[in-house]
Deep mutational scan, measured.
Amino acid sequence: RRRVRAILPYTKVPDTDEISFLKGDMFIVHNELEDGWMWVTNLRTDEQGLIVEDLVEEVG
């Protein structure tokens, strides 16, 4: 499975499927959606939700 790491922190918009995260958080990518969004699991918090790919980098 594809893994990505947050390069910046992010605070979710209330009442959306987004998740908040810290710089350095690792995610497993489940689905890549339109307009650069990804459905992921945050490995630190075990939370699932949407993040935008501009805020993460690939992990080898």
Score class of each variant (00 low, 15 high):
3 R>T: 14
21 F>A: 03
9 P>Y: 06
32 E>P: 07
44 R>C: 11
27 F>K: 00
27 F>N: 00
19 I>P: 00
2 R>M: 07
46 D>G: 15
21 F>W: 03
55 L>A: 11
54 D>M: 13
51 I>C: 05
24 G>K: 03
56 V>F: 04
56 V>P: 01
10 Y>S: 05
6 A>L: 01
19 I>Y: 01
49 G>V: 01
33 L>F: 13
23 K>M: 11
46 D>H: 14
19 I>A: 02
44 R>P: 00
26 M>H: 12
19 I>T: 02
36 G>R: 07
17 D>Y: 12
56 V>M: 10
28 I>N: 08
47 E>P: 01
52 V>Y: 14
16 T>H: 03
5 R>F: 05
26 M>C: 15
33 L>A: 12
12 K>Y: 03
22 L>R: 10
52 V>M: 10
7 I>Y: 06
38 M>C: 05
59 V>F: 10
32 E>R: 13
37 W>P: 03
38 M>T: 03
46 D>L: 14
22 L>Y: 08
27 F>W: 01
50 L>Y: 09
57 E>I: 09
48 Q>W: 08
17 D>K: 12
46 D>K: 14
42 N>V: 02
21 F>Q: 01
51 I>E: 00
9 P>C: 15
36 G>Y: 04
59 V>P: 06
6 A>V: 01
49 G>C: 02
35 D>V: 06
45 T>S: 08
27 F>H: 02
46 D>Q: 14
3 R>L: 14
14 P>D: 11
34 E>Y: 12
40 V>R: 00
29 V>T: 03
39 W>L: 10
28 I>Y: 08
8 L>S: 11
57 E>L: 07
45 T>Q: 02
15 D>S: 09
14 P>C: 13
58 E>G: 08
6 A>G: 04
52 V>D: 12
4 V>R: 04
22 L>D: 10
7 I>F: 06
17 D>E: 10
8 L>M: 11
32 E>Q: 13
38 M>D: 01
49 G>I: 01
12 K>D: 03
8 L>Q: 13
8 L>G: 13
12 K>L: 03
36 G>F: 04
44 R>T: 07
57 E>H: 06
9 P>F: 06
45 T>K: 03
59 V>S: 07
35 D>P: 07
49 G>R: 00
56 V>L: 05
14 P>L: 07
37 W>G: 06
25 D>L: 01
50 L>V: 10
25 D>S: 01
19 I>G: 01
5 R>Q: 10
35 D>W: 10
14 P>A: 10
5 R>C: 10
43 L>M: 13
43 L>I: 14
24 G>L: 03
3 R>I: 14
16 T>G: 05
60 G>F: 14
41 T>S: 07
11 T>W: 09
58 E>M: 06
42 N>F: 02
23 K>H: 07
44 R>V: 05
51 I>L: 08
57 E>P: 01
18 E>W: 04
49 G>M: 01
57 E>Y: 07
3 R>V: 15
27 F>A: 01
45 T>L: 03
45 T>G: 03
1 R>Q: 15
18 E>K: 03
33 L>T: 10
54 D>Y: 15
15 D>I: 04
24 G>Y: 07
53 E>W: 15
25 D>H: 01
35 D>T: 10
38 M>A: 04
17 D>G: 10
19 I>M: 06
54 D>E: 12
31 N>Y: 13
36 G>E: 03
4 V>M: 08
51 I>V: 10
4 V>H: 02
3 R>H: 13
36 G>V: 03
3 R>E: 10
42 N>P: 01
55 L>I: 06
38 M>V: 06
24 G>F: 06
58 E>S: 09
26 M>S: 07
50 L>C: 14
30 H>F: 10
48 Q>H: 10
6 A>P: 00
6 A>K: 00
30 H>R: 05
20 S>H: 03
29 V>R: 01
46 D>M: 14
27 F>T: 00
47 E>H: 06
54 D>W: 13
23 K>P: 09
5 R>L: 07
11 T>K: 09
28 I>F: 08
35 D>M: 11
8 L>Y: 14
35 D>L: 11
27 F>Q: 00
13 V>T: 14
11 T>P: 05
60 G>H: 13
32 E>F: 08
54 D>G: 12
44 R>H: 05
60 G>V: 14
40 V>F: 00
34 E>V: 13
55 L>C: 13
2 R>A: 07
8 L>V: 14
22 L>E: 13
56 V>C: 09
10 Y>C: 05
33 L>H: 11
56 V>G: 01
60 G>D: 11
53 E>D: 13
49 G>A: 00
3 R>Q: 10
3 R>F: 10
33 L>Q: 11
52 V>K: 15
22 L>I: 14
28 I>H: 07
40 V>I: 02
3 R>P: 05
60 G>R: 10
25 D>M: 01
15 D>T: 07
22 L>A: 10
51 I>M: 05
35 D>I: 06
40 V>D: 01
47 E>N: 05
13 V>C: 15
47 E>S: 05
59 V>D: 08
40 V>L: 01
23 K>T: 12
32 E>I: 14
38 M>W: 06
12 K>C: 13
37 W>V: 07
49 G>K: 00
